[in-house]
């Protein structure tokens, strides 16, 4: 029973890290219809920014999170028109070109990071690092618990924004049907820009947690690109609640398969489930994607 509970908690904690990334990624996909391959690189840049700022200012990386979120939101806001330009090219497969563009962007960012900062592994130490909380005999790593709680709060705030504010409603309208939303007077470009900016900010912010749970190095984002795809496809493209459910599912599957079947089967089972979802629930597990 102890092991079962521990595995359950671990699963939720692993999934918790993905939720924020998945939600941003999914909404940005829903609105812009662009799969951003650079998702892992935003995570990496967020983690590196926290590392450098922490080194020079000695402020705890967790306290730097609001600044990093704003800073990267600004970068996203300034950068989005470049991607938009690629999408708007009069070409039969503009979406594909945008995809190739973000793929190139991801390689470029990773390569530049490797050249600029070298291959060394860096440690991001926060006040929660390496501490743990004992909860009825279950050991909970403090930094992971912190990441999950933070992730839930941010996601809740984001949900409030999407469902209760006027801008949020226009975003959802644009995600649902850009053409009709456009006919209703919603400025698609402005919305895309806003959404991309929020997505980059959220993702870079998650990088701070990921960097302190694992470590900071130029290739650190790669595995999250794969996971982001899993979450978005499993949750239904563009679906907000689907992304949350799929994020948690990803964590729980990883955790239970690792413990009860063996770590060797984690990816096999994960992607087999993804296959089943694509075959039987092509709109995502909640049926809310498109």
């Amino acid at each position: 029973m102890g092991l079962f509970m521990q595995t359950l908690i671990n699963g939720i904690l692993i999934g918790g890290i993905f939720i924020t990334i998945a939600v941003g990624f999914s909404i940005s996909y829903g609105v812009m219809h662009i799969v951003d391959f650079a998702v892992g690189e935003w995570i990496m840049l967020g983690a590196f920014t926290a590392f450098w700022l922490n080194m020079y200012t000695n402020v705890d990386p967790l306290l730097l999170i609001p600044f990093i979120a704003l800073f990267f939101a600004l970068i996203g806001y300034l950068f989005q028109p470049v991607i938009q330009k690629v999408v708007n090219i009069k070409h039969r497969s503009a979406a594909m070109m945008a995809l190739a563009f973000t793929f190139g962007l991801s390689t470029l960012i990773r390569g530049s990071a490797l050249t600029l900062w070298g291959f060394n592994n860096r440690n991001l130490i926060t006040v929660l690092s390496e501490k743990n909380v004992d909860l009825f005999g279950i050991t909970v790593p403090a930094i992971r618990a912190g990441a999950t709680v933070f992730s839930i709060l941010v996601t809740a705030a984001f949900a409030y924004f999407l469902y209760r504010t006027k801008t949020g409603i226009t975003i959802r309208a644009a995600a649902e049907n850009k053409t009709v939303a456009g006919l209703m007077g919603i400025d698609g470009h402005r919305i895309s820009r806003l959404v991309y900016s929020i997505y980059v900010g959220l993702t870079a912010m998650s990088g701070v947690f990921i960097g302190s749970i694992f470590s900071v190095f130029p290739d650190m984002g790669l595995r999250y690109t794969a996971f982001a795809f899993f979450v978005v496809v499993a949750g239904g493209m563009g679906s907000f609640s689907g992304a949350i459910v799929a994020g948690l599912m990803l964590g729980l599957i990883s955790s239970f398969v690792s413990v009860y079947m063996g770590g060797a089967y984690v990816f096999l089972i994960l992607f087999f489930i993804l296959y089943l979802i694509l075959v039987f629930f092509p709109k995502g597990i909640l049926g809310k994607g498109w």
């Binding site: 092991l3 671990n10 790593p141 595995r223 990883s254 413990v259 770590g263 984690v266 990816f267």
Partner: peptide, 15 residues
């Protein structure tokens, strides 16, 4: 247990 690269070790170590 031989696991794929990129595996999160936390659940394994819990077990």
């Amino acid at each position: 247990d031989v696991v794929p690269a990129g595996t999160d070790f936390t659940p394994l170590i819990s077990a």
